[in-house]
């Protein structure tokens, strides 16, 4: 049995999952069990949503990626994988992204679409934004400046006594080739294509991974707008709308009946002690280094030390 940690969840698997962080925890409650097997033809209960690759209801989800794998996820506790290719890394890639997100939805936890770094005061700064907004690139540029990675692309947030905490996803950063040419932190042996014939590369950062949840100092909503880099503070009321937009796989909220959960999750984050910021950079411009410097000077220097 292989034991791992992802999004603060214990994952027990009958086979090695190299992209996840190994767990030494003795806890077994709330564990997700992963196994290879035959994925059923259809859901047991009523189907609420049917899409080309996804069929689901509140507690069951069949994910079928042609020529790659089928996945059956139930009750947030069990994942059955039926590979359709010999390229097991590709099979696992969809497990890291869509499948683990499904597990979270079924556990009534909505992941956020964020990347993040650790600050010197042992809190985290998260960067929220749509696909290709530059979350990972911003994080990597800040790592060039000495910050440690916390999470890439997704994280789980929970609020306790007014303090917002983040659980990192798993120790892989996905980035475009151009960003990798600029990074000075990782050696070549840590970098490999995410999927053969794909466009992104994966960087493993297992030795820098943080198992514990950490307080979130700030969430920076990044976007492409205007002709120069700008940073500004944002009120919680404004952040609510953007948080809703930055739920990872937000298109599942309705089909999995998570509207109320979404409202509660976003409200609790907005009402916590987290600071919200907007950071804009010119679209198509090679501005990530300037962008990272502006974030360090105008945000981190204020709240991260």
């Amino acid at each position: 049995m292989f034991k791992y940690l992802a999004f603060g969840m214990q994952i027990h698997s009958g086979f090695e999952i190299s992209g996840l962080y190994p767990s030494t925890s003795l806890e077994s409650g709330n564990t997700v069990h992963v196994e290879l097997g035959k994925v059923p033809e259809s859901l047991i209960n009523e189907v609420l949503e049917v899409k080309p690759f996804s069929t689901y209801n509140e507690n069951e989800f069949i994910f079928n990626i042609p020529e790659t794998a089928k996945y059956y996820i139930t009750n947030g506790t069990k994942v059955v994988i039926e590979p359709l290719t010999d390229n097991f890394e590709e099979v696992l890639f969809y497990f890291y992204t869509g499948v683990l997100a499904t597990v979270l939805f079924q556990k009534n936890i909505l992941p956020l679409h964020v990347s993040g770094i650790k600050l010197k005061n042992n809190t985290v700064m998260l960067f929220a934004g749509h696909q290709r907004a530059g979350k990972s690139s911003t994080s990597i540029m800040l790592q060039n400046m000495g910050y440690l990675p916390f999470t890439d692309d997704t994280a789980v947030l929970d609020v306790e006594n007014g303090i917002c905490y983040a659980h990192a996803s798993y120790p892989i950063i996905r980035a475009m080739e151009k960003t990798l040419e600029r990074q000075q932190v990782y050696s070549e042996d840590k970098i490999k294509p995410v999927i053969g014939e794909g466009f992104k590369y994966g960087i493993n950062f297992h030795e820098k991974f943080t198992e514990q949840k950490l307080p979130v100092s700030g969430i920076v909503f990044i976007s492409e707008e205007g002709d120069e880099v700008t940073v500004s503070t944002m009120k919680a009321a404004e952040a609510i709308k953007l948080l809703k937009f930055n739920i990872y796989r937000k298109q599942w909220v309705s089909g999995m009946k998570k509207e109320m959960l979404q409202f509660k999750t976003i409200s609790s984050i907005a009402q916590s002690q987290v600071h919200f910021f907007s950071a804009k950079r010119p679209w198509e411009a090679d501005s990530f280094e300037t962008f990272a410097q502006a974030i360090e000077e105008q945000i981190i220097s204020q709240i991260g030390n």
Partner: peptide
């Protein structure tokens, strides 16, 4: 991405 629930940049170029 919205219709297929996958990340476009991660899809094989042949697909």
């Amino acid at each position: 991405e919205d219709n297929l629930d996958v990340d476009a940049d991660d899809v094989r170029s042949t697909q």
